[in-house]
Amino acid sequence: MTDNNTIVQISGLSKRFGATQALDAVDLEIRPGSIIGLLGANGAGKSTLLRHIIGLYLPDEGRCTTFGRQAKELGPEELGRIGYVHQEGELLDWMKAEQLIRYVSAYYPDWNTRLEREYIADFEVSLDARVGSLSPGQRQKLAILLAIGFEPDLLILDEPAAALDPVMRANFLDLLLNIIQDENRTVIISSHILSDVEKVIDHVVIMRTGRIVLSCGFDELRERFSKVRVSAVSGELPAELPFTNVLDCRRANGEAILTIEDCPAERLRDQAERLNCRVEIETLPLEDIYKIVVGQKTPVAGAAR
């Protein structure tokens, strides 16, 4: 059953394309006001999942409910609350950019002209250019404007910033942060540029071969993994470092750098003190966490060497 406080409810969703199992018994619940980072390698099933949410794909098994309706039954009322930027960037190439904006805005009663003007100025969208002649980055900027111009409740961004240059990516992230000022607005962002994603998301979903391998709050995830720099207070670093849940250990220049899962900072400090060592604890960047989760690194049994 769909919770009234849930925007998207997916349960047991499976989809197969020929011999490829694109989605395999996926369960996911998205609540309003969250910014979800959907991560995974190419072919992990991210785009397929997003297309189920807006009803473009139909599941072989399971259910997908968006705004309380089965995704296949979504009508203009529900889809008019969803903005969608996708990686293929299909647009009407023969139109000029301003004609395309006028055309798309004609479908939305709540098109925000002020937002449109601000975006055009900030992102330097060339209105007079033919859409087909735009560079990939300019096309992407236009596609984003068309997705946010009607201030959707649910914004789905499938590789939105891949074609943008670093400055425009930074502007785009600022824009996203502005968009999510409205606490009821939900954003699902699928991207390979994890350094960008981690600046805005509050929930992480990691997919691999059609399955969700991790779904949790971003803060919770960052607390789970840490990078620990261990150095001796005096003399040599011990040959064995008996820390628990060590995923990786590298030694260089008389110190060891450990990647540790599920070990509170206090316990780490206690253990280091007993070894006559000092520790510096840092949170891992999302990219490293992603590699650990997708690479399925298991904790090293026994002491780290």
Binding site: L56, E73, G75, P76, L91
Partner: peptide, 12 residues
Amino acid sequence: NSTMLIPPGRRR
């Protein structure tokens, strides 16, 4: 088969 950003559902 258009994925153009306009909001028709399957019925529409």
